[in-house]
Design a protein around this nucleic acid. Sequence first.
DNA 1: ATATTAAGATTACTTTTCGTAACTAATGAA
DNA 2: TTCATTAGTTACGAAAAGTAATCTTAATAT
Lengths: 110, 110
Amino acid sequence: MNQLCPRFEKAMVLLSTRWVGLILFELLKGAKRFSEMEADLPISGRLLSDRLKLLEKEGIVERNIYSEFPVRIEYTLSEKGKALEPVIKDIQHWAEEYISAEEIADNERE
Amino acid sequence: MNQLCPRFEKAMVLLSTRWVGLILFELLKGAKRFSEMEADLPISGRLLSDRLKLLEKEGIVERNIYSEFPVRIEYTLSEKGKALEPVIKDIQHWAEEYISAEEIADNERE
DNA sequence: ATATTAAGATTACTTTTCGTAACTAATGAA
DNA sequence: TTCATTAGTTACGAAAAGTAATCTTAATAT
């Protein structure tokens, strides 16, 4: 039935989980707090929470708690997460070269 | 609200549409017919049809009709589609390095 | 005690997505 | 004419994913 390499398929399904790519892009810029990401990304808090939990479970994102007042929690990429940088960079390059301004305008009209 | 580059965001949303990555992977190996892809991929014909239409609309996939008996229709990648090869290759490399055998086993148990 | 703050859980609800199964269209063979 | 083959399309209902608004928790300042 299925002719695909299971490692690749697993990676592909994980990376094509909605918003995962955008979250990785955010975190490649450095440590981020929940509320910062919530402001930057076009998704609800509930979804962001779900995705961060998924990425933590997969060993891609680390959750660091700082017991200050008020408590500060920062999300960072693990080594496994940082290793995805080339993927994100490639997508950026592709987007710059092949996504036209008209396509963006089309999207906003929808 | 949103701090992301719109080109990148558009690319990311497109590429993280479910099964798009696996379809691109299939087509990077060469021209494919509908039924071949349907057999290789873990998705229904209806979804495959939807995704191919999306990718055609986005200028990533080309649909070539050969009027033989029975009719043969082949899908290939456009230049824009082929330019995504580095993305797919990077994901393959990452998967080989970071997706463990245990994770695969976990998935199959679900 | 009460107010404040960050993080995120919960609830209630709407919307979108996906799978199944049946159907269409074109073409040529029997 | 009726069947076979490829490549889809359509209708429908179930399941999943999404949102917004409202709680909860824990720590500290007043």
